[in-house]
Design a protein around this nucleic acid. Structure first.
Lengths: 102, 102
DNA sequence: ATATTATATCGAAATATTTTGATTTGAGGT
DNA sequence: ACCTCAAATCAAAATATTTCGATATAATAT
């Protein structure tokens, strides 16, 4: 249906789940591979993989392969994009106050 | 279970739904009452009320009554809080790179 | 007091997200 | 080639969110 806000939804979804926030906190101290992340989480392997996909889709995290391991880190660029989006969403622009109400 | 990230979830939920993003966009041009918001949305009255509750719970929007109307506007303070949270979440702090992996 | 209007709340249904366990894929190692 | 391991994917179940219609509440008007 309306798809105009889909990008923003995809980005902010990264921050709307406690497991993902915990993962992001772990990544703040530097890149980690999935197995390292898994150690500190109370979820199964496929569930972690699911959350990592959402985080990567948001652009806030990037992943790359090293042998059979997948490494993850926070993307500076992705975070900047999220901040810009939040700035844009929250900046008021009271040009047509007259159309307000009732 | 773990409740440590609940505050952040509550805040960012505001930005994770297309209807709510559309509502926020409408509020960017100034305060509005529910009936005005409703005009531009394709959802029922109780559904709008539900979304407004989520937005107010996040702190990003504030509401107040004027007679029988409820008015809503974007909260500068609430937005600042959201931005600070995002900053905190996304700031990397690579002090213990050694504990990273594998 | 009664009626009207705007919004909130409730319970149930519809829909979306998350978890789980099983399977698959793909990189190494033997 | 075969085995092992890390991670992704799949289908189904579990859970959470969103919507809808009905009702409740609270302010105002008659």
């Amino acid at each position: 249906m309306h798809t105009e806000y889909q990008d923003q939804v995809t980005v902010f979804k990264a921050f709307c789940d406690e497991n993902r926030l915990q993962i992001l906190e772990m990544l703040r101290s530097g890149e980690k591979c999935a197995c390292k992340l898994q150690e500190n989480l109370d979820i199964g392997q496929s569930s972690l993989s699911y959350h990592m996909k959402i985080l990567c889709d948001s652009g806030v995290v990037v992943s790359w392969q090293v042998g059979k391991w997948t490494h993850y880190k926070i993307s500076e660029q992705g975070c900047e994009r999220a901040k810009e989006m939040l700035e844009a969403i929250s900046t008021t622009n009271p040009t047509d106050e007259d159309t307000n109400c009732c």
